[in-house]
């Protein structure tokens, strides 16, 4: 089997320039003792996307991220970042893995200088400037000179994001970036991610919070016990189950008849009358219903949320509140 480590140089043929920021194929990690953390994972993260990597705690998200960054070597399978060999790709990748980790006896700024020095492509001449910018982006300029051990949980998390923003990045890999942040901090991080993504950087963000992914991301993948259960745009994931129009009326039989004549599929008459929306515009349906003398008390379009998708796919609830 092949090994993928930084030292190995280029263990696989780099993908031709493609629109994929992250590609994995059959990526598997079996830890000693036989425990399979990640099982034959095939991810395709398009460039420019904000990609939510969803899954309950312990579903293999972090192990996957560690494999992507070359920290853990896969038991089987291949992966590529930005279509490049790992050592060439990593300087363009900012990463936050499993929470912040810094030198407690150094200041925030000194910590960033340390990690910047570790990057062989980073210029010492511009380090000061870049560190200042990164600190400003996460709002830590005032606390730059404070020792890390005196930082609050939120400040630590923000410093870790600053470390991921030290250079011009094509890809950000953020593992649970809002962990430990208060609601205000969470909002700031979401705004930051959107801002970064707007600049053309691909963001791969893992989370166990469905709502977070729904709000931030354009794409998502859902993991469960090491396996990928779904992947795609948020829209397509939700679209896997059709949007329905739901009519609240005292005359359900009439309404059902109208909807059927309009050609809507799967018409059901329960407490509400509902049918698959298909390509119809809700306002037109409303006009027809009114024209046909159906008393419309309420009309709504119901789209399944990611949670519905997840429950549908796994038959399991999701830890929505974290």
């Amino acid at each position: 089997m092949t090994t993928v480590t930084q030292e190995a140089g280029a263990p696989f043929r780099a993908a031709p320039p493609s629109d994929a920021a992250i590609v994995t194929s059959g990526l598997t990690k079996r830890f000693r003792g036989g425990q399979v953390a990640v099982d034959a994972l095939d991810l395709a993260v398009p460039r420019g996307s904000v990609y939510g990597f969803l899954g309950p705690n312990g579903s293999g998200k972090t192990t996957t991220i560690r494999m992507l960054l070359g920290l853990v070597s896969p038991t089987e399978g291949e992966h590529a970042l930005l279509g490049l060999p790992l050592d060439q790709a990593l300087p363009r990748v900012g990463a936050l893995v499993e929470g912040p980790a810094f030198y407690p006896y150094l200041s925030g700024e000194a910590n960033l200088r340390r990690f910047d020095a570790a990057d062989p492509t980073a210029s010492a001449a511009t380090a000061r400037e870049r560190i200042g910018e990164a600190l400003e982006r996460v709002g830590l300029t005032a606390a730059a000179g404070k020792r890390f051990r005196n930082y609050s949980l939120g400040m630590r998390q923000r410093l870790a994001i600053a470390a991921a923003l030290l250079g011009p990045r094509e890809l950000l890999i953020l593992d649970e970036p809002t962990n430990g942040l208060d609601p205000q901090g969470t909002r700031e991080v979401r705004a930051l991610v959107k801002e970064i993504a707007a600049g053309g950087t691909t963001v791969f963000v893992s989370s166990h919070l469905l709502a977070e992914v729904e709000q931030m991301c354009t794409h998502a993948a859902i993991m469960r016990t090491g396996k990928l259960v779904a992947q795609g745009t948020i829209a397509s994931l939700s679209g896997g189950r059709a949007a329905r129009i739901r009519v609240e009326t005292p005359g359900p039989a009439d309404a059902a008849r109208v909807l059927t004549t309009l050609g809507l599929a799967d018409v059901r008459a329960d407490a509400y009358v509902s049918a698959e929306l298909g390509g119809h515009a809700p306002e037109e349906i409303n006009a027809v219903l009114v024209r046909e003398g159906v008393a419309v008390r309420g009309l709504a379009v119901v789209r399944p949320s990611l949670e519905d998708v997840f429950v549908g796919l796994t038959g399991e609830g999701f830890d929505v509140d974290g």
């Binding site: 696989f12 031709p16 590609v23 395709a44 291949e78 930005l82």
Partner: peptide
């Protein structure tokens, strides 16, 4: 999966790898 061709890891394939054109971006 676009464009990923797994090859057996050998030193020679790694050495023979022709430099790829820089991907779009930075």
């Amino acid at each position: 999966t676009p464009g990923l061709v797994p090859v057996a890891e050998t030193l020679s394939t790694a050495e023979r790898r022709t430099p790829e054109p820089a991907p779009p971006g930075l």
